[in-house]
């Protein structure tokens, strides 16, 4: 690098630039926080949905599935599974009916032995998720 561009100039660009763009990022974050109520379907977050999120987390569903495109790529996207299945009952039935020893030769989902209450909750959580405004993602019903 040329001699006229000194180390202290480089250092100032580092500190000044990082600080400036971090502040810009914070400003965007504040703006996002204020825009979220119209998009994130928060009105639907009931106690049941909150419990469903906990069921989702404590069984590590995200270790096989994606949710809004984030997670693991081993099993179907579940952000829109409510739309794919059409009802919370169908989701519950699917989860409850997983064979304990898996499906021979096929990628398998565990039998979690969830209680009726937990099943209701996780299905409600997936319904709430499907109603978040995701800018039309995923592109189609297959997720």
């Amino acid at each position: 690098m040329s001699e006229t561009f000194t180390k202290s100039m480089a250092r100032n660009i580092f500190y000044g630039g990082s600080l400036f763009f971090f502040l810009l990022f914070l400003a965007l974050t504040f703006d996002t926080e204020s825009a979220l109520p119209d998009r994130d379907n928060r009105a639907a977050i009931t106690e049941q949905v909150a419990m469903g999120k906990r069921v989702w987390e404590e069984n590590d569903c995200v270790g096989c599935h994606t949710l809004l495109g984030e997670g693991a790529y081993f099993a179907p996207e579940l952000g829109n599974v409510y739309n794919r299945f059409g009802s919370t009952d169908a989701i519950k039935a699917f989860i409850a009916s997983r064979p304990k020893d898996g499906v021979p030769g096929r990628r398998s989902m565990p039998q979690f032995n969830l209680s009726e209450e937990e099943l209701d909750a996780v299905a409600a959580f997936l319904k709430y998720t499907s109603e978040i405004n995701t800018n039309n993602w995923p592109p189609n019903i297959q997720g």
């Binding site: 270790g63 096989c64 693991a72 081993f74 099993a75 304990k100 020893d101 898996g102 499906v103 021979p104 030769g105 096929r106 990628r107 398998s108 565990p110 039998q111």
Partner: peptide, 10 residues
């Protein structure tokens, strides 16, 4: 798909 299932799920 069912390799080591259900001992070590994916």
């Amino acid at each position: 798909g069912d390799f080591l299932f259900p001992e070590i799920p994916f």
